[in-house]
Nucleic acid binder design. Structure first.
Length: 409
RNA sequence: GGACAGGUGGCCGAGUGGUUAAAGGCAGCAGACUGUAAAUCUGCCCGCGCAAGCGUACGCUAGUUCGAAUCUAGCCCUGUCCA
């Protein structure tokens, strides 16, 4: 990599955030001269972002750490349109109220990663609905339309993907890139924003914004993308069997969040420590070089640090304590899911369903038949096995990793 | 509006009248081996039921048939080309 002068680019570079830059030298110069307001856009399609967005969130954090101003752009307006990037299917449209609620919920997570306020390097959160919803159609066509050619829009991956797969791309979605470009230009005027960051799939959209700002206002702005993050075995970040790994506490308990990181692939440890924690690089290097079973120590550090950032210190400590009691001690931890045994008792199958380890009785039965169900560490092979209400706390397990507590009602 | 091609389980994708709850692959779950890792091997993978079995399911609806994912009609949706 090149030698960057600015703290910002050095920081981003050495921690592995940089995939592409529109003008490395220009941005480097800008960032070493003063405060650069930079933004990343986020969807408001769900009440929580998930781990897949964590790189972008961390990048805003780095921006602030390097003395610049992070702008969180919530796509309240663009969510009404739907980004076709990476989707092979159109999204369902959300109501305005749902979008507003989502934004409020998502904001709580950003408040953990960024310092908000009115100061020059304090983070701000803006919603593009503010300006997008006020746009008149004819006005938009006249001001922005001339700067886009269909020829070029057709070459974008997000468009080509749909066309190649002979899947529908609606005009609504086709307009997404125009709106996103408009956002950049708008933020450059409102907030003096000079930089847009995003995942590598956003490159095209970002470049559009840069051009639009230049053509309409003569402003020079910059773009930076992160590499597409996958786990070592090629899966997208943040997806597990149980669903997405949500950042909001109410969407995913801290213990499960912690476990996600604790269970990461050996090969990912170093990369993740650099991207998702504030640990100094020499410490990261030390942890990542651990071999064999020792690397588990590094995974615990990773889990602790990420959980701490995202969920707070208490949540991280509780999750670690629970994990250590559950796995190392064979005991029980506070954070495990709990299910109350009714007075008349219940079967192992009902208990597995009740605590959420199986989604149907059939699945629970198969789990028992396959030898994956345990009570206090003892495999139960009889699916009609009954659990008494009189008993004290019982540890119930599905497989080696999912554990819970059965407690008399 | 017209011609043609399509719509199958989370995804991809076989299947053109019964033996099809639907091949195969991916993803997922469990077991073995390990280190709460990876790789590998084995089993499972619509719901209810201890079970025999029952109920749902191949875009929707109505038919033909003893019997349909498979045939017919209408409708809806998608793509390609034409207007």
């Amino acid at each position: 990599m090149t030698q960057y002068q600015s703290t910002l680019l050095r920081l981003l570079d050495e921690r592995g955030y940089i995939h592409q830059l529109t003008d490395a030298a220009g941005l480097d110069k800008l960032a070493s001269e003063g405060v650069v307001p930079g933004y990343i856009g986020f969807d408001a399609t769900a009440p929580s972002l998930h781990v897949g967005s964590l790189v972008q969130i961390m990048m805003l954090r780095r921006l602030q750490q390097a003395g610049h101003k992070p702008i969180v752009l919530m796509g309240g307006g663009t969510t009404k349109v739907g980004d076709p990037s990476g989707k092979d299917e159109s999204r369902k449209l959300l109501t305005e109220q749902a979008i507003r609620d989502n934004i409020a919920s998502i904001r709580t997570v950003f408040e953990r990663f960024l310092t908000f306020g009115d100061g020059p390097t304090d983070a701000v959160l803006v919603d593009n609905d503010e300006w997008l919803s006020k746009l008149g159609y004819i006005e938009l066509l006249r001001t922005v339309g001339p700067h886009f050619t269909i020829n070029r829009m057709m070459t974008f991956d997000s468009v080509k993907l749909r066309l190649d797969r002979e899947q529908p791309l609606t005009f609504l979605e086709f307009n997404y890139m125009i709106l996103q470009a408009y956002d950049f230009r708008e933020l450059s005027m409102r907030q003096g924003c000079r930089l847009q960051m995003g995942g590598s799939d956003q490159w095209g959209n970002i470049v559009n914004g840069i051009e639009l700002a230049r053509r309409m206002n003569g402003t020079e702005v910059f773009g930076l993308t992160t590499p597409l993050l996958t786990t070592a075995d090629g899966a997208k970040m943040g997806k597990t069997a149980a669903g997405a790994v949500w950042l909001n506490e109410d969407a995913l308990p801290a213990y499960d969040f912690w476990q996600y990181w604790r269970n990461c692939d050996d090969r990912d440890v170093g990369r993740f420590l650099k991207l998702f924690t504030d640990l100094p690089l020499d410490e990261v290097a030390r942890l990542a070089s651990l071999e064999g079973a020792e690397i588990n120590a590094a995974k615990i550090v990773l889990a602790n640090e990420v959980t701490r950032l995202c969920r707070g210190d208490d949540a991280a400590k509780a999750a670690e304590a629970t994990a250590s009691a559950t796995f190392a001690g064979g005991g029980l931890g506070e954070d495990l899911p709990v299910y109350a045994i009714p007075a008349e008792g219940l079967t192992i199958v009902d208990a597995l369903v009740g605590i959420g380890f199986a989604t149907s009785r059939g699945e629970a039965r198969r789990l028992v038949a396959g030898g994956g169900a345990r009570l206090d560490g003892v495999a139960i092979n009889d699916e009609s096995h009954r659990i008494d209400a009189q008993a004290t706390e019982i540890r119930i397990s599905a497989g080696k990793k999912r554990h819970g507590i059965l407690r008399p009602a």
